[in-house]
Design a protein around this nucleic acid. Structure first.
Length: 271
DNA sequence: ATGCCTTGCGGAGCAAGA
């Protein structure tokens, strides 16, 4: 009997406290094994862990008051490895959390561990403020760490809100957005550099069609017009990419009442 | 359009998001 596949998803929930009912409903229906959350917008001690643990998940969170904040949910045992992106102890934003997940053994024997990180990459707007160089510096740090992870030769999934539209195909209005921090040449070059280390964009790899979005602004009827951006990504190490079976974007949560402006991106790795 | 909508904070009106 073949081992069970493992499903992973990333979702910027735009406040986990406001979105708890939508999050629980989605966990019950999508039943992902590992979830990367962003913008929980609360302290870790205020994260609604009991409700999520009741659905069978282990929970790890790094939070701060009001802004940012990330969390990992896993149906399998999980050991936290990093609660911040290495490389700048002065960076106090809650934007990175990495853990090792132990999948259950099966008939064929022990399965390799999975290393999962949840990433909330800085937005970077406005581009003439110090937020943009902060974003680019954060991306360089991420590249350094992602390179070190490759040397481990593990199954690695770096999932999150990257705040980068990789190409013009990932934006509803490329000309209007070309000077935005999400689409600027430097942001795209940094994202490509990350990919060029040897990572695979799991959603793009199996869904090459343009205009396959993960975010729609609340304003100006962007959802109703399907005018969105693809900025939520799952990057796979070669050992993970070798197992990539399915991937996609689950639009359903974006169409529900009181939605986040992002919707989950997901992938499934063969067991 | 320095807007439009939605959050947190705090108890009004910003700041931040993307």
């Amino acid at each position: 009997m073949p081992p069970e596949p493992i499903r992973l998803a990333t979702w910027n929930v735009n406040s986990v406290k406001i979105r708890i009912v939508q999050l629980l409903d989605w966990l019950r229906s999508a039943r992902p094994d590992v979830v990367m959350l962003q913008e929980i917008k609360c302290l870790a001690e205020d994260f609604p862990r009991l409700e999520i643990e009741d659905l069978g998940y282990n929970v790890a969170a790094v939070g701060q008051k009001s802004y940012n904040g990330v969390a990992l949910l896993s149906r399998h045992p999980m050991t936290v490895e990093h609660t911040a992106l290495p490389g700048d102890p002065g960076d106090t934003h809650a934007r990175y959390l990495e853990a090792v997940v132990e999948p259950p053994a099966n008939g064929a024997g022990k399965r390799p561990v999975l290393r999962a990180a949840t990433i909330y990459l800085p937005n970077g707007n406005p581009v003439d403020s110090d937020k943009y160089p902060y974003k680019l510096a954060w991306m360089r740090r991420l590249r350094q760490h992602a390179k070190a992870l490759l040397a481990l030769e593990e199954v690695v999934v770096l999932g999150g809100d990257y705040n980068v539209c990789p190409t013009d195909d990932d934006v509803y209005d490329p000309v209007g957005w070309r000077n935005d921090a999400l689409c600027r040449t430097e942001s795209r070059a940094e994202f490509r550099a990350l990919i060029n280390l040897g990572y695979t964009d799991a959603v793009r790899a199996l869904n090459p069609q343009p205009h396959y979005y993960s975010f729609w602004d609340y304003q100006a009827g962007r959802w109703q017009r399907d005018e969105g951006l693809r900025i939520d990504h799952l990057l796979l190490s070669p050992q993970a990419a070798d197992r990539l079976a399915q991937s996609g974007i689950d639009r359903a949560p974006r169409g529900r009442d009181k939605p986040s402006d992002h919707t989950p991106a997901w992938c499934e790795l063969a067991g």
